[in-house]
Structures are given as C-alpha cells and as structure tokens.
Amino acid sequence: MQPIQLFDLASRQAEWLTVRQQVVASNIANANTPKFHAKDVTPFDAVLDKSDITMARTNPAHLSGNDFSDSGDIDVKEAALDQEIGIQESGNTVGLAEELSKSGDIKRQYDLNTSLVSSFNRMMLMTVRK
C-alpha cells in the first residue's frame, strides 16, 4: 500500500467526520424547532464507493449537492425515525440522547484518525532522517 493513499483516505474520513459533526450540531440546535426533521450523512463506505466526478463550482453562488459540504460526494439525508421518540407533537423528530451519542462516536473516530495520521507521519519522517 502506498503511503500517499493513506493520507488521502485519512483526510477524506476527517472531512466526512467534520461534515457529520456539523449535521449533528444542527440537529441539536434544532431540537425544539417545530417541523424540523433530524438529518444524517451517508455512511463513510458509501462515500468512498462513490466516484469523485461532480460538476465544478466556479462561482460561490452555484448550487452544491447539499448545504453542508462543497465537495458534493457527501450526502445529507433525513435520518431514519428514532422509534423511541417518534414524531413529537410539534412535528420534530430529533432525539437528543441519540444525537449526543453520535457526537461521541465522531469524537472517538476523529481522535483515532488524527493519531493514525500523526503516527504515520512520524514513521515517514523516520525514514527521511538518516
């Protein structure tokens, strides 16, 4: 396996994780907004499988695939209904506990990601130094 590929993979996962964090933040902030439906991003393997061909945005006013990411290969969709909470009286579907656990997941994965990158970087530096 080539080292460059690992860095590319790591940065794509980091991007996916940050977009997911933004989506979770938006869900939590809208926990009391009437008619708001909880959202989630597509799983990472689906993002990886998708080809990287998207139309170039040459102007900031151009529409991107979604509001959260410029790269267009990360999709934000309505999340499956949390059965314990269901739809509230106000038409809102956010379950705070679920969102917080998602956020914890993101933190853990991001920590793993950054430590992997840093240790890999250390390994590469080791080969460069005599």
């Binding site: 991007e15 940050t18 977009v19 964090q21 933004q22 979770v24 933040a25 938006s26 902030a29 959260f68 990411s69």
Partner: peptide
C-alpha cells in the same frame, strides 16, 4: 464544517 458547527 467545524466552524459552521460552532456557529450553529
């Protein structure tokens, strides 16, 4: 996305 998450 991270700054956006902070803002939201």
């Amino acid at each position: 996305p991270l700054s956006a998450a902070m803002k939201i």
